[in-house]
């Protein structure tokens, strides 16, 4: 549940500065053990958690690594855990997670290989989206594609911003490294709903595997943290229902054949 913190716009003072203690997870491959570093940051309550990290990088420690690009929840690159919960720090104001003099804990996403400090390796995560046959097209463009056209002219017009927060929140992704994960399965369901030239049967058979949609244990954590309202858990359940219906249908049809 979202925590309502302090004042709304009413009490907003543009010049107010808070002193926040950032506790930041640190890890470099070269220098062994992970640990936490503490930084004190002067920051306005309406500034974001990412703003604070940038201040640390700019004025205190140039070796701090974290990822970001758009600053407005659309590139999906900045995902970390803020006070334990998966969030896009570019859209989380300081006042939403702490108060003046408080602490903000910043840690990398779970269930991904660690690269450096707050940066994790999303390579396999992206590959799984590809394996789900996720096709990227502008909704205003015709679905047929020119064979010679490279795929990078297509721009995403989807809800999923591929941030990986759902995979970090998912307890099954923690236990089973082969599990496709919520985002890839939600992508599969999208492709079944709207195939965009892809064969829905191949999407179904990809999802219909031990480490595919059947591996989910219905914890619904993915949908709790998704910043883009994808509701991956509901997509996985829809996928299952669809597959189950088909399996049952096939079973009965086979029964008919036997009788005939």
């Amino acid at each position: 549940m979202k925590q309502e913190m302090s004042d709304p716009v009413m009490a907003f003072d543009g010049n107010e500065l808070w002193t926040i203690h950032y506790r930041v997870f640190r890890y470099k491959r070269s220098s062994g053990k992970p640990h936490y570093d503490k930084f004190n940051v002067e920051i306005a309550p309406h500034e974001t958690v990412l703003d604070g990290l940038e201040k640390i990088w700019a004025f205190q420690d140039r070796s701090l690594t974290f990822r970001h690009a758009c600053h407005h929840a659309s590139c999906g690159s900045c995902g970390i855990r803020v006070n334990g919960v998966e969030k896009l720090p570019c859209i989380v104001p300081i006042r939403e997670v702490t108060r003046d003099g408080g602490t903000v804990l910043c840690e990398p996403l779970r269930n991904f290989p660690l690269v450096s400090d707050l940066v994790v390796d999303l390579g396999q995560f992206y590959r799984r989206l590809e394996e789900a046959h996720f096709q990227i097209i502008r909704s205003s463009e015709p679905i047929e594609r020119d064979e010679h056209e490279s795929s990078n002219v297509h721009t995403r017009f989807e809800n999923c911003i591929e941030c990986g927060l759902c995979v970090s929140a998912c307890p099954v992704s923690g236990t089973d490294g082969l599990y496709f994960g919520p985002a890839a399965l939600a992508a599969s369901w999208r492709m079944i709903q709207e195939p965009r030239g892809v064969d829905p049967l191949s999407v179904r058979s990809n999802a219909d595997q031990e480490h595919g949609c059947w591996r989910c244990h219905v914890a619904f954590e993915c949908s709790e943290v998704c910043p883009s309202n994808v509701d991956p858990a509901a997509a996985i359940m829809a996928l299952r229902q669809d597959l189950l219906k088909r399996k049952l249908l096939r079973l009965f049809q086979r029964g008919d054949h036997d009788r005939a």
Binding site: A169, P171, A219
Partner: peptide, 20 residues
Amino acid sequence: RKTLAWLDMAGRKAGTWAFL
């Protein structure tokens, strides 16, 4: 480590408690 991942409750909601 993977088995212990069951017990990592930081930031998690009722869904993971139900699962655990």
